[in-house]
Design a protein around this nucleic acid. Structure first.
Length: 639
RNA sequence: GCCUUAGUAGCUCAACUGGCUAGAGCAGCUGAUUUGUAAUCAGCAGGUUGUGGGUUCGAAUCCCGCCUUCGGCUCCA
């Protein structure tokens, strides 16, 4: 007998060789039906794989992340089976699950595939799914595996096999389809009830642009048709909230071919919104001892040679600007830190002055590749809510904690309640990519890990994701539709102070090197506002709205009263406008609704006589008639 | 940068296989209407079809380059 420990801590006894499916069955039949895979001692297994010893067991359904990914990966195999059936001779690359579904990279030979073929493939997949074929795991020797794919003529699988060790190779088989695969898989194709192919795109074999381009076919699948329907509705909603669409409709920002791709132009309403956001953060930073500074948009090439940016990014960035003077070169600044290092270094610093926190909404320019540009979230000119904190090594943790406090405060204030923090460390196998000594890196990495632990932040750790000068902590926020975005960032840097030879005089009267923290709670104003727009679907928090109300006179006769109201509200710091067009009230309401103006004040004869307003809330409808003081009080409750 | 989608009026979209003066709604302008909770009516104006070449008797439509753009790959200090 073996002991199986379940997540709730209970221990059950089973025959040696019992599968997790059988364990599920012993608990309830319904559960067994929904189990897609199981985590056995932390490793995801096929649910029908026998467990040979004592184990911790977690049964995985579609509700679990690993259950989903297993389900999707199995659907990728199903799609491959369908493709082989429909297009004999296709060769297969890899077919993993991804965040929202799965893909398979395929070599179609001379054929092409477009979205018009999706229906046919989906039908075939569902037809094969209905055969309820089991996914069967088979151990296979390397030589047998090689001869199988040689016979099949699939050079991609053969290449994958080169990296695998004999004795660890498994095949999975379902129906007429066999694939090289580590697994795990769901028990049976029958649970795949709804399938939708999403898009085709080109993708290089193994991500290498010098190699052949394969066709990547994306799809998503669900155990229930209803879940697919809900997912598609979510995508529809996401489309409606696309910040590029809303930005145009609400006249927040624009792009111009003449100005240049990736260079956002802020329109008056967008500027009003952005300025409020900036002022909010500026005030919070001053409360926390930051000192605002302003630095130029360019700097001499030597500055970036000192910082190391020139060496690292010189050729891939905007090229130097020449001046009438021979040999004089300036660069548009790609970062604010070199300028801020100069500020630190401009006079002798005492340990008593530390920490020094220098803040700037600094606009930087980076030549992103053409294919990367995307609305406000990926641009070539953007403004960082940047600050650099210079401190003694002994102050590092406290400063880091302070930045964590500010960042989480700011996110909460803007309605981002769900977030995790990603700790990005060096790639231990490829240390040449980074500048700075091992010792210094170790210090910085452990400072981040300790501080996040101390405040109890949910973190994930990624190796190889660090910046070239130091490790970082990125905030990944979840928006209203459950999508994840990277926003704020905090980076510890021992390298730049070294390169700029920054010093302070310690209590021992000797020079010491400060530590530097780069941080930006929003990340960039552009990206943040892009994400915020999608998060709130264009209905920004009232305090940020460029126009908080619209006064809608029933007819032109009441324009004077409307003007009085506007002045009165302006005096109370409530901003808005009068729609004094010669239009019917229904029309004015509709236009205000479409423009997402939060509050509509309808004034006609009744209101003018009684010195009142009829209030209507965007999206909610009529709120009632009230006098102006009551409206102001009501307004405050909405802030 | 690479592959892929597309580019027609300020916006959203038409224009059959190359063929009459490139159309419509909204927005704009002018006039009428003076309006009670999501679009009042009429008229007017608006385009070198992204751009530069080419093919053709004839190009929005076909071909090539470039720019911009959708989606993806690679990248993201």
């Amino acid at each position: 007998m073996i002991n199986i420990t379940l997540p709730d801590g209970s221990v059950r006894q089973y025959e040696k060789g019992t599968s997790s499916h059988e364990v599920a069955l012993s608990i309830s039949e319904g559960l067994a039906r929904n189990v897609l895979a199981a985590k056995v001692n932390g490793e995801v297994w096929d649910s029908n794989r026998p467990i040979e010893g004592d184990a911790h067991l977690q049964l995985l359904t579609f509700k679990d992340h690993e259950g989903k990914t297993t389900f999707w990966h199995s659907t990728a195999h199903l799609m491959a089976e369908a493709l082989e059936a429909l297009y004999p001779g296709v060769k297969l690359g890899i077919g993993p699950s991804i965040e929202n579904g799965f893909y398979y990279d395929i070599d179609l030979g001379d054929r092409t595939l477009s979205s018009t073929d999706f229906g046919k493939i989906e039908q075939k997949m569902l037809e094969l799914a209905r055969q309820k074929n089991d996914y069967v795991r088979k151990d296979i020797s390397k030589s047998d595996a090689i001869s199988y794919f040689q016979e099949k003529g699939d050079e991609y699988k053969l290449e994958l096999l080169e990296d695998l060790e004999d004795g660890q190779i498994t095949f999975y088989e379902q129906g007429n389809f066999v694939d090289l695969c580590r697994g795990p898989h769901i028990p049976n194709t029958g649970s795949i009830k709804a399938v939708k192919l999403m898009k085709v795109a080109g993708a290089y074999w193994r991500g290498d642009e010098n190699r052949k381009q394969l066709t990547r076919l994306y799809g998503v699948s669900f155990p229930k048709a209803k879940e697919l329907k809900e997912y598609l509705a979510l995508l529809e909603e996401a489309k409606k909230r696309d910040h590029r669409k809303l930005g145009k409709e609400l006249e927040l920002f624009m792009f111009s071919e003449k100005v240049g791709a990736g260079l956002p132009i802020w329109l008056p309403k967008g500027t009003a919104l952005r300025t409020r956001l900036e002022n909010f953060l500026k005030e919070e930073q001053i409360k926390r001892g930051y000192q605002p500074v302003i630095t130029p948009h360019l700097g001499k090439k030597e500055l970036y040679e000192t910082s190391g940016h020139w060496e690292k990014y010189g050729e891939d960035s905007f090229q130097p600007i020449h001046t009438p003077r021979e040999g004089e070169l300036f660069l548009l600044k790609p970062m604010n830190c070199p300028h801020h290092c100069e500020i630190f270094g401009h006079k002798p610093r005492s340990y008593k002055d530390l920490p020094i926190r220098i803040a700037e909404f600094g606009t930087v320019y980076r030549y992103e590749q053409t294919g990367e540009l995307h609305g406000l979230t990926r641009v070539r000119g953007f403004t960082q809510d940047d600050a650099h904190l210079f401190c003694m090594p002994s102050q590092l943790k406290e400063e880091f904690l302070g930045v964590l406090e500010l960042t989480t405060y700011v996110l909460k204030k803007l309605g981002f309640d769900e977030y995790t923090a990603q700790i990005s460390l060096r790639d231990p196998d490829n240390k040449d990519k980074y500048i700075g000594s091992d010792e210094v890196w170790d210090l910085a990495e452990s400072a981040i890990i300790e501080a996040t632990k101390e405040v109890g932040l949910t973190t994930t750790t990624e190796l190889g994701e660090a910046a070239f000068y130091g490790p970082k902590l990125d905030f990944m926020v979840k928006d209203a539709l459950g999508r994840r975005w990277q926003l704020g960032t905090i980076q510890v840097d021992y390298t730049l102070p070294e390169r700029f030879k920054l010093e302070y005089i310690g209590s021992d009267n000797a020079p010491h090197r400060p530590v530097m923290i780069h941080r930006a709670p929003f990340g960039s104003m552009e990206r943040f506002i892009g994400v915020l727009t999608e998060h709130c679907g264009g209905k920004f928090p009232l305090w940020l709205q460029p126009e908080q109300f619209a006064i809608l006179p029933i007819s032109e006769k009441f324009n004077d009263y409307a003007k009085e109201l506007e002045n009165d509200l302006a005096a109370s710091d409530i901003r808005g406008f009068i729609d004094d067009r010669n239009e019917k009230i229904g029309r004015k309401i509709r236009d205000a609704e479409v423009k997402k103006v939060p509050l509509m004040l309808i004034v006609g004869e009744k209101e003018a006589e009684n010195r009142q307003v009829s209030v209507r809330k965007q999206g909610d409808g009529d709120v009632g008639t009230m006098n102006l003081d009551d409206f102001k009080a009501y307004f405050k409750t909405l802030l």
